[in-house]
Every structure is written in structure tokens, then in C-alpha cells.
Design a protein around this nucleic acid. Structure first.
Lengths: 195, 195, 195, 195
DNA sequence: CAGTAAACGAGACGGTACGTCCCGTCTTATG
DNA sequence: CATAAGACGGGACGTACCGTCTCGTTTACTG
């Protein structure tokens, strides 16, 4: 039973879609700094006036376009904690090696340093991506595989941290050996926490 | 007998210093994206022509200014591998909590995605910062405390990765408990590698 | 039984009236250059689509609104040529000192330089305003007070010209002394023409 | 002995000249309302930034360009008042028939209705053009040909008013017969003033 | 210690992007 | 079917910064 508030002009949807698509394209090519509204307008065929009609500022458009980056991964459920984590880590590693958004994300991290709105968006984005780790941890606790006191954030940091580090900071290869090592380390450490 | 190449006009040094100082100031305030040569010129009192005389482009100036970020930390030498690593991790955590350069670094990481020169600079910066980890690992190996096959990069990733992750991605507190946990985990994992 | 051409929707009349009123208001306030259809729409409550349905262009609306400027003065008939002219001159002088349309008229004169339609409208407007001079001249000729060969346009130019000149060009006061002098000069000149 | 204040960058002079020339061209073609800075920039090859560097606003450029309209006519000195006036009237009539500035002047008159700065500029322009009438009147007074009490403004209005009226309002031909009639009327009226 | 070469500040210049406003056309939903 | 509401592409507005350029004027070294 859709309310009347949901009725939107088709033209609006068309314009918005065209702008977001072109924005996304430019973002992955040049990062936030290289995004130009004039260029988006030119290449999407949508006039600047229309763009500013739908997004009050460059930042707003950025926000909107960025928040559509990277869809949610599906959460593995193998029945074994380490296997679940390995699945998540491999999935993330895959993304880090190939996905277009990985070249934009540093722009967001950078902008978040100074723009609270972008910081909020980054936080939401990050939460979405990290939720699967919390979920598999919860399941493992329920199964008694993981100690009840296990800190999901610490576990996440132990796995995601090294992967991110390789992608953006050290720029070394993220091969399966590395992914496996990182995951095993994290699991072993967890075990150590509860003798 | 100093070669003529080393003779530099005092005025040149003065100009360069003023420009770099102002660039650094602006960089930490607004990031790479907010840096304006016009503004640097205005506030440093050095004319744009002079700036472009010394640095061929905005990027070159950026490079020069950024490469002065974060001085080299001194390498701890307690005689115990884990203590050395803990010292390094604590030092890094301290920096991540307080140093001005931490708000600029994402700008560099971002720019490095698209600019090979900046990528090279980032790589050099990174190597400098990470070298202490390699050094203490080397010493530990010499002492027989660490296995000869220990991979310093993997060890580094295990410690630095989670710290960076907290500073820029999850934005959770980097308290001493976390630093300790991260370090211990890394050391334990290393031990596991060589039964 | 009125023909169908004469049946006009009441709503149409309402819209037209509201638009013309607002257009006139804006015209006298800001001149032709300052007239904005968007603003007329906003303040009259009539949508832009409706405005463009009734007038094909900005110019057409302008034309319509301007052609309602300055109603026809009544023609004096004192029985004396000079008194009639003085009456007309005084009436005109009054208008030039106080009427709102005097601040719009230069806009029309300007636009007429380049837009033939506006030129035609200006010509019609002008004819209407100048007709009284021709009428009193005609009456004077009939009474034998004025020579049959008297050129009404020349007479009109001699009286209206100086008045307009003061209002828009020299911007000097148009007091009664001036109006009287101008009229008397014109009449005297006419007398001189036919000894 | 030119002061150092008069030293102007050649580039500035070049830019200013190009902009003023193009502005003048556009002005005579389209009037004030049709003048576009973007278009001036495009056709003159001078960037908008440079234009705004030299003139703070569209109005300022307008002012500058307009104030160069119509050079000063030379003042006739035949020794006979009526002949002098006839010379001036004929010169003006010539201009009104042919000069490019006559199509711009209504724009100025219009703008002057609402913009005090343009009003001041118009006033200055007007004074310059009307001064010759005051000069020949002065000379005539000195020769005793004209009464000492003769009002130059009234005389000017009597001659210039009808000419302007024909050019912009009635749009009738300004032939020599008309010019002669207007001048003679004015002179005769003046004579009448002093019995 | 005068002469000269460089380094300099000041700022003009052509470009490009910004975000805003208005034009005249159009589409949609309401009465 | 006329209307109000308002989206749309186009294009001008005035501002800011880019990287290049031309000026005269210091300033430091060299002969």
C-alpha cells in the first residue's frame, strides 16, 4: 500500500539515475578530488541546474553516490567459525584486489577527516561492511565455539586491518596464503584469550 | 672544496622554507584537496612565480612537503622481541592518536591511487616508517628468538594493520589494551608458525 | 446568440488579468530589463505554462502590458487654440512629473530600436497620445484660427519635444513657466509661418 | 613631465581596449540589455576573470563603454547667432540620422531611470553634448545679439527637444526643412522674450 | 666596492569550475 | 481541458584557483 509520498516524477528518476551513474564513473576514475559537476553535467546530459535541484551541493551528491558503493556481501554459514571467517576474509580480499570502489574509498577516508557529514556516511558504510564479522562471531558464540567475552571489533580489526593495510598502505600482494595466515592468527589469538 | 652545485642562494633557501612551512600548515589543516598555491603565496609572502620556479607543479610541491611528514622513530632495543614490538606499537599508537600528519596521510593514500609520483613518495614514506619493524625482527632472528623464516612484512601487517584500521576506518579508541592485544597476537602467531 | 469565438473561459480571463496586473507592477518598478516571467508567475500565482499559453513570448506579454500604459487624456475645447494647447501641454507635463509609466517608457523606446513588434506597439501608443494635438489643431483650422497649411506633427514636436527632453534627457524641472514658454513659442512660430 | 603613476602594463591596455571595442560593438547591436560579459569575453579573446579584474561589475563596464559614445562636436563660430544654432542643429540632426550611438542612447536613458551611477554618467554625457549650445549663446550675448537674460537651457530644449523627439518617439524624418523650422522658431521666440 | 646576474614581489593573463538565476519548453496530476 | 506545480536543458552571472607570463626591484656574488 504505497503512500502518495512515493510518487516521483519519472523525469526526476531518470535525471537522478543518469547523474549518479556518471558521478560514480568519474569517482572511480579520478577520486573525489577530480569530480567536477560541470563534467558530470556535460557527460550525463543533465543540466547543472537540475543537478543542483536534486542535490544541494557537491558534497551531497558525493554522499549519495558514495553511499551506493560496494553492496553487502552474503554471510557464510559453514558451521565452523574459522571457515566462516576465512570465507569473509577471502571475499574481502577478492574485493580489495578487483573492485572499483577500492580506489575511491581513500578519498572518502580523507574527506571524512574534515567533513562530519562524510564522516557519518563513511561510518555507515563501514558498519554495513563489518556487520558480517559480528554475525559469524555471534553464531560461533551461540555454538559455544567462541568465548562469550570475544570482542567482535577486536577480531574484525585483526582480520580486516592487515588486509586494508596491504591494499592501500604497503601495496603488497594479497594472496591466499596471506589471507589464510591472517585468519588463522586471529582465530588462534582468540583461543588464547580463553584458556 | 665544495662543488658549485652546492652553493645555494640564501634567498632561495628562505623562499623554499617559507613555502614548505606554509604548505605543511595548510596540508594538515585542509588536506591535499584544500591546498591552494594562491593561498600559500599570499600567506607565505612568496610570489607564485617563485613557487613555480622551485617546484614545477602543485604535485611536486605536495611531494616535497609530504615527504617531510613524520620523522623517523628511534628503534627500541630491549633485548626482548615482544618488548621491542610493544615499544614500536605503542609509539605508533601515540602518533596515530595525536600527530598532525595522521589527518594528511589519507590524502596521500588517495592521491597515490592515481598519481604514480605520489605513489612512489608514499612508498618511500611507508618504507621509512616500517623499517624499525624489520630491524627488531632482524635482531630477534640474530638472537634466535625468532625463526629465520619469519616474514617481517606479515608481522608488520599484523601489528600496523589493526592500528591503522582503528585510526582511519573504524575510528574506535586505540587504547593500550588494544595495542597490547594486537602485539601479543602477532607474536603468538609467529611462534605458532615454527613448532 | 454570441459566436463561439467570444466565449472565453472565466479562468482564462482571471489568469490574464492577474498576469497583466503583476507584469505592469513589475514593469513600472524595474523596467523591461528587470521583468522576470518566473517572478510574475510566482507573485501572480499563475503558472508559467499558463502564461506562455496566453502569450507566445516575453515580448508578447510585454507588448500587451505596455499597450495599457497611460490612458487617453480628454481633449480640451476652450474655443481658443493657444488655451487648448496649453491645456494639453500642462496635462502632459503633469504626467511627466508624476505618472508611473514615464519610468517605463524609455524601456519601450529602447526595445523599439531593435524589435519591430515593439516598435509597432510604441508607434500605436505614441499615435494615441499625440492625437489630441491633431484634434485641437483641426478645430483651430476650422475656426480659422490656424492656417490650413499648419503641420500638426511639427507643432506637436515643438511642444512635446522639449517636455520629453526635460523629463528624460536634461532632467531639469518641468515647471509651469517652462510649459507656458514652450507653448507660446510654438504658437508664435505658427503665426509667423503664415503672414 | 609624466609621473610614474601613469605607467600601465601594456597587457592591461591591450585587454581594456579589446574589451571596450567589443563591448561597444555589442552595445550598438543589442543595446544594454543584450550585452553579455560571456559573449564579450568569447569574441574579444579576453577572459572573464580579466574583464572583472578591470571593471568591478557589468555596470562599470557599461559605464566605461558608454561614456566613450559620441565625441564632442566642434562649435561653429560664424558671427551670427542663428547661423551658429543652425550649424549645431544640422550637426545633431546628422548624428541622429546616422550615428551608431543613437541606438544605444535609449538604453542609457532607460537604465538611468533606476541606476544612479548610470544617471550620473548620462548627465555627464548630456552636459558634454549640450555645452556647444551654451557657448554659442554666450558668444551671442557678448555680441549683443542675444539678450543677457536668455536662458541657454530653454533655448537648448527648444532645439534639441524636437530633434530627439523625432528620432526616438515619433520616428518621422528629420529633414533639413524640419531642422530649419525648429531653429528659426527658437530664435524668433527668443527675440519675442525681449521687446 | 661597483657591476652584474639571479632571484624576487607583484600581478596580468586565458582557462575551467563553482553554485545561482532566469529563460522557454515540457510533463504530470488536479479540478 | 485549463490549470498549478515544477522538472528540464541552456546559458549568463560573478568568484576562485590554476599554471604561465611579463614586469621593474632588490639582493648577493664577483671582479
Amino acid at each position: 500500500m504505497p503512500g502518495p509520498a512515493e510518487i516521483v516524477d519519472k523525469r526526476v528518476e531518470r535525471s537522478k539515475a543518469a547523474v549518479l551513474a556518471e558521478t560514480y564513473r568519474q569517482l572511480t576514475e579520478t577520486g573525489i578530488g577530480g569530480l567536477s559537476i560541470d563534467e558530470v553535467s556535460r557527460r550525463s546530459g543533465v543540466s547543472k541546474a537540475t543537478i543542483y535541484r536534486h542535490w544541494p551541493s557537491r558534497s551531497a551528491l558525493l554522499l549519495d553516490a558514495c553511499s551506493r558503493l560496494g553492496g553487502a556481501a552474503d554471510v557464510p554459514d559453514t558451521g565452523d567459525f574459522q571457515d566462516d571467517l576465512l570465507g569473509l576474509a577471502r571475499g574481502l580480499a577478492d574485493q580489495l584486489r578487483t573492485a572499483a570502489w577500492t580506489s575511491v574509498y581513500p578519498s572518502i577516508i580523507d574527506a571524512a577527516e574534515r567533513d562530519p557529514e562524510i564522516a557519518a556516511m563513511q561510518s555507515a558504510l563501514h558498519s554495513g561492511w563489518m556487520k558480517p564479522f559480528a554475525i559469524v562471531a555471534e553464531r560461533a558464540k551461540a555454538r559455544g565455539e567462541a568465548p562469550a567475552g570475544l570482542s567482535a571489533p577486536v577480531l574484525t580489526a585483526a582480520i580486516v586491518g592487515p588486509l586494508f593495510y596491504r591494499r592501500w598502505f604497503s601495496k603488497e600482494e594479497i594472496d591466499d596464503r596471506f589471507v589464510t595466515a591472517v585468519t588463522e592468527t586471529a582465530v588462534a589469538a582468540m583461543a588464547r584469550q580463553t584458556p
